[in-house]
């Protein structure tokens, strides 16, 4: 049984996981908090993590019906993420683990997104191809074993979720941008505006969303305020189509190369309905499996960190106490 903490960005998260079974998965979502700022405010987020981390941890343990002394290890996200935010989780995890003289398991956040697939309901085992698309990351992971993954391609500039967020801001829609664009796009025509599908002719598996963002900037400028406002549904639908097209093109190309039998989607962008449908059609045409984890395991959470930690080398007590948490976080955040 592993107690895991995740504080790499917006949310303070704690979970208790036993093998593939999630006993509790608490996320103190700060979205309402961030809305008024148009994004995360890191100082406030760090302070928020500090204020919330003990309460979130207590809730995770009590919902799991477990005592701290019963866990086998304490896991924590070591990076990537904002150093100040990571430090809150790292220091708390060290304190908790040392209090009960249990091992500490630092886990990689991106490995966590991959490892979410190892959890109930419907856990799967490698090998599989995993597309991780979130606000901070976009990558194709070739997963051949539980303890690691190979990065087959990644974004060269912006993440897919960031493209949604910035597009939403350009269109005067809310934050987070993914759900806002999806909502606006429902009434729109995805063929109304031809946005470039970047990298579609590039033979590699890397992504690029920065040119698409620029194309939207120019289109909004051309249209002017009034016509932009009148065209928001069409702009949102076309913009969303261009993001999803690129993700699906690269997924398809990775399948051509790899011979994978299962595709998994992770990260917050995996909540996008058009992406889910298009990935579903792709997998159906190729007669391979599509693994969609529940939404609460797509967005940042600590259960996925526990799942990654279960396949990561623990650091025994008291070896981790001699680490300088700050230097460690600074190095790990590189």
């Amino acid at each position: 049984m592993i107690l895991a903490l995740e504080t790499s960005c917006d949310d303070t998260c704690a979970a208790v996981v036993d093998g593939p079974r999630i006993l509790s998965n608490v996320v103190s979502s700060q979205a309402s908090f961030h809305e008024q700022y148009g994004g995360v405010v890191p100082e406030v987020a760090s302070r928020h993590h500090l204020q919330l981390v003990n309460a979130v941890t207590d809730a995770a343990l009590s919902q799991a019906g477990a005592e701290l002394s019963q866990v086998d290890a304490v896991a924590v996200t070591q990076g990537p993420g904002l150093i100040g935010a990571l430090l809150v989780g790292m220091s708390t995890a060290k304190a908790l683990a040392s209090a009960v003289r249990k091992p500490l398991i630092p886990a990689d956040h991106l490995h966590g997104h991959v490892a979410a697939n190892f959890l109930e309901p419907d856990p799967i085992d490698p090998p599989f191809l995993c597309l991780v698309a979130s606000g901070g990351h976009t990558l194709l992971a070739g997963v051949s074993d539980h303890s690691s993954f190979e990065t087959l391609g990644q974004t060269l500039d912006d993440a897919a979720g960031e493209a949604f967020d910035k597009g939403a801001r350009l269109l005067g829609l809310g934050y987070p941008g993914g759900p806002a664009i999806q909502r606006a796009a429902q009434e729109g025509d995805p063929a109304a505006f031809g946005f470039p599908v970047a990298m579609s002719r590039d033979p590699g598996l890397d992504f690029s969303f920065s040119g698409l963002k620029t194309a939207l900037v120019y289109r909004v400028r051309e249209l002017g305020e009034e016509r932009t406002a009148a065209s928001v549904p069409d702009l949102a639908a076309s913009y969303q189509r261009a993001i999803v097209d690129q993700l699906v093109v690269k997924l398809e190309r990775a399948l051509d190369r790899g011979g994978w039998g299962v595709v998994a989607l992770g990260g917050g962008v995996a909540a996008n309905v058009e992406l889910r449908e298009r990935a579903g059609q792709l997998c159906e045409a190729r007669e391979i499996g599509l693994k969609l984890v529940p939404l609460e395991l797509c967005t940042d959470n600590a259960a996925m960190i526990a799942a990654a930690a279960a396949h990561t080398e623990p650091i025994p007590y008291p070896d981790y106490l001699t680490f300088d948490a700050s230097a460690q976080a600074a190095n790990l955040a590189v």
Binding site: P42, I83, G136, A159, G161, E162, D165, A333, V334
Partner: peptide
């Protein structure tokens, strides 16, 4: 890769 740090605020290389 040098990518946009918008989401994490900071990156170190």
């Amino acid at each position: 890769p040098v990518t946009s740090p918008t989401f994490t605020i900071g990156q170190r290389y």
